[in-house]
Design a protein around this nucleic acid. Structure first.
Lengths: 254, 254
DNA sequence: ATAAATCCTGACGTAACGTCAGGGGCAAGC
DNA sequence: GCTTGCCCCTGACGTTACGTCAGGATTTAT
């Protein structure tokens, strides 16, 4: 298929603006397939396929940066099936949630008809339900699938230096987290720790046995960890995770 | 019910941030019920009721400014039932749309399994479907109900000067629209026309017979319109509406 | 060849907050 | 009554995902 489109035609056919298409190119989310000598963008069919993923994940509620993480590796026909399945599932969950909120509104309507007022607890529960979907971390659903696929395909291909580098980064992060716990809460420093934690997990994150196996391999490359037992670094990992969890919760409540 | 909350407790109970609550106060969307002498905000139960409307309309996709229009008049127990019904309906529509998109993704999955590739038209249609809900003008659904309720209650209470003022504003807008159609497209001027049109409709808009009756009354107060027939100003109204529609579509495609 | 349409980059603005600075108020405990 | 920790306030700058505009180059149709 040799058909291609300049940015305006490409955007119009998809129902998005040229501004959007240019912005996505600039941030590296959707690169055109090529450029003319004059600098004009040329898009192809595979760019439409990628745009579909972008727009659907955006509808689901992921930020563009999160979408970039999900689509970090090329989507081939094998991973596309997995990705489409995840999109479908997330959409169904959201639809179910909207129907739940609609049901609660109906209950409020009935209360209104019988007593001309709605009690406070009903209102609060309704507000909570409305807020729930905006606070779900949808990225987890896609990273879980993505990272699992990634780990299972390439877990054995990491070089020893890479493993060592990861181990060092993790160790340094644990140390900084422990240091932070010993003095007054410093929001800027904590925010930095959160970012480092997220960046590390985004690179390698997978839950369950794979993550543990990976961390074990990384730690075994560090000369400076001779006397540490497996239980110890698992606890270290959990303490750090708990701290980050707490920091994120505190940040969100402001 | 005399219970009340300072901003932090109010926000925490609803699951929103204090920053959000303050911002809503600042833009006049959700004013606290009172302030202490020191300037601290006090919120009550009716503020929770209003917040429920705000957050639900926000979930539906309205901007805060649009929400402000919908909630411009106090919501009493009579209009609350109408408003809740509209919220419920919009949520159900959105849920249905999400399920529709999920169904199209399932069809794409099946195509992928049988041929290892998805044809371009399927992708385009999927993208179009994803985009559809983000481009619906949800405000119409709420303004229709709100404005209808408003017109039916107060249509006869407009003073003659008010009717004349509206007629003059409308006539001036029509003239400016006609003038704009006679020369080169000027995006800034057109944007201004769109704003004036929206502002007029937001004040009085209702569709169908009510709007026509109102415009007829407004025009009849204008001394300068002696020879104009009913058909003429209906056509004038339609021509202006068509121009605004076209301008908005052109604006959206960039 | 000309004119209109479309393309480009750069830059400022917007909506809805997040984050921080710096200082005042409130409530509980001593 | 005093102290302390937590919460409150306003003001201001920053972020994300674009919208809008300026000014000039390229492409397409007549």
């Amino acid at each position: 298929m040799g058909e291609r489109w300049r940015s305006g035609a490409f955007a119009a056919r998809a129902g998005v603006t040229v501004r959007t298409v240019r912005y996505y190119d600039r941030i590296g989310l959707l690169r055109p397939s090529g450029r003319s000598e004059a600098g004009q963008r040329w898009y192809t069919e595979r760019d439409y396929a990628r745009l579909q993923h972008i727009l659907t994940l955006k509808l689901i509620g992921l930020s563009l940066e999160e979408i970039q993480q999900v689509l970090a590796t090329d989507v081939d026909s094998e991973t596309m099936g997995v990705l489409l399945e995840r999109q479908k599932r997330a959409l169904k969950e959201q639809a179910a949630h909207l129907m739940q909120v609609a049901g609660m509104i109906e209950a409020a309507q009935e209360a209104l008809q019988s007593s001309e007022t709605i009690d406070l607890e009903t209102i609060i529960q309704l507000i909570k339900a409305v807020n729930m979907s905006t606070q779900v971390n949808w990225l987890d659903q896609f990273m879980t699938a993505e990272q699992q696929a990634k780990i299972s395909q390439s877990a054995m291909q990491r070089t020893l230096p890479e493993q060592r580098a990861f181990g060092m980064a993790l160790r340094d992060l644990f140390r900084d987290i422990q240091a932070e716990q010993k003095h007054m809460w410093d929001a800027t420093a904590v925010e930095n720790l959160i970012r480092r934690w997220d960046a590390l997990l985004a690179s390698f994150a997978a839950e369950g046995v794979e993550l543990q196996a990976w961390i074990e391999a990384a730690y075994s490359q560090l000369d400076q960890m001779p006397g540490m037992e497996q239980d110890e670094w698992v606890q270290e990992l959990r303490a750090a995770a708990a701290f980050i969890q707490h920091a994120k919760a505190k940040r969100n409540v402001r």
